[in-house]
Amino acid sequence: CTPVLRNHGFIYVDGEVPEIVPGEDNQASVLERLGSPSTQGVFESTTWYYMSDTRQSLAYQRPQTSYRRIMEIQFDDAGTVTAVNEYGIGDGRRVTLVDRETPTPGREMSVWEQLFGNIGNLPSEQFGGEQNLPGGAGGPRRDE
């Protein structure tokens, strides 16, 4: 059985990577040739990233990334390109993700509840519901 191929992220025009020359190109010329970046530096908007990868999935196996290219373009404050770096699939690492999650309120519907139909929504106490504020859920005071 043949694996299914699928491209994700940025697509290079007719397949080859355009030449971005540090010192000559600036944000405008990069924008014009590549379009807006896939993502920018988290804290520095002067670093642009163009990320693209191809994934292969075969029957029941988990899809594998078979090709990845990340182009990192750094600009100076004036907006001219200072450096262009490339990252390929080779630079990738296997990272074990932390499985702790910041808690969010809200509970799963129990099996019986779903089977026998009453869709429970979020009980208020999940949110510290009882508003003990005067006039809160207690309703307008009688003397008003």
Binding site: N7, I11, Y12, D14
Partner: peptide
């Protein structure tokens, strides 16, 4: 065609 780099 998409696979040859023309997604659009």
């Amino acid at each position: 065609v998409g696979a040859t780099g023309y997604a659009f």
